[in-house]
């Protein structure tokens, strides 16, 4: 279960991004870098919202480059708009089982279990508008669990939450990773998040997504661009 980016290069008129590395399996890997450097674009490439001009994206030796987003072994949690506001939490989460929402009794039981796992029991019938920001993130994670994909991509998913809530969410993600053997890629603008739960970190800067490096070493002795980004 490994994800490999092989000579990937994306070119836009005012922007380019190249990546060539393997993502550690079954771990949380953080992605850090200045805003506009292409952190989210990297996730978009993996999720299938962007097509590289060159190179291939492989998962377990299967070429994903031309696979549509929904058919990739990937679940995504965005910073916002993770839930459809007109559907109940149960239905939003149920979309992870069937995008047409034809849910039987068994499916609903699965939804209930997933909600319980993320700590949202009893809120199934609420609309997202009636949830707090942290609860909305939890619902999105519950849906990702039901999709049962080996890769979980978090695109600044918890950036809008306060520090305490964010720590809770990171702990939740860590627990889910361990129980469900997920590989997690997490874009964050806080190096502290990376230090807290990610053994490896990808630093994106100057049009290059650098290969994952051990987080502790990276943050302790930053060099060049990373030192400038961290500002110390």
């Amino acid at each position: 279960m490994t994800l490999r980016l092989e000579g990937v290069r994306l070119v836009r008129p005012d922007f380019s991004l190249s990546a060539d590395f393997t993502v550690p399996k079954g771990e949380i890997t953080a992605i850090i870098g200045p805003s506009g450097s292409g952190k989210s674009t990297l996730l978009s490439l993996i999720a299938g919202f962007e097509t590289p001009a060159q190179g291939r994206i492989l998962f377990e030796e299967r070429d994903l480059t031309d696979v549509p987003p929904a058919d990739r072994p990937v679940s995504l949690v965005f910073q916002d708009n993770n839930l459809f506001p007109h559907l109940s939490v149960e239905r939003n989460v149920g979309l992870g089982l069937d995008p047409g929402l034809r849910l039987g009794a068994e499916d609903r039981a699965c939804v209930a279990r997933a909600l319980e796992e993320v700590g949202l029991s009893g809120l199934a019938q609420r609309k997202p508008g009636a949830l707090s920001g942290g609860q909305q993130s939890r619902a999105a994670l519950a849906r990702a669990l039901l999709r049962d994909k080996p890769l979980l991509l978090l695109d600044e998913a918890f950036a809008a939450l306060g520090p305490a809530l964010r720590r809770d969410m990171l702990a939740l993600v860590e627990g889910l990773r361990a129980r469900h053997e997920l590989s997690v890629l997490m874009v964050t603008h806080d190096p502290g998040d990376a230090a807290a739960i990610a053994p490896h970190t990808i630093f994106v800067d100057g049009g290059v997504a650098h290969a994952p490096a051990p987080t502790a070493a990276l943050l302790e002795a930053p060099s060049g661009a990373l030192a400038a980004y961290l500002g110390d």
Partner: peptide, 8 residues
Amino acid sequence: RLADSLGM
């Protein structure tokens, strides 16, 4: 994108 990623 959310709908795309869910296969809707």
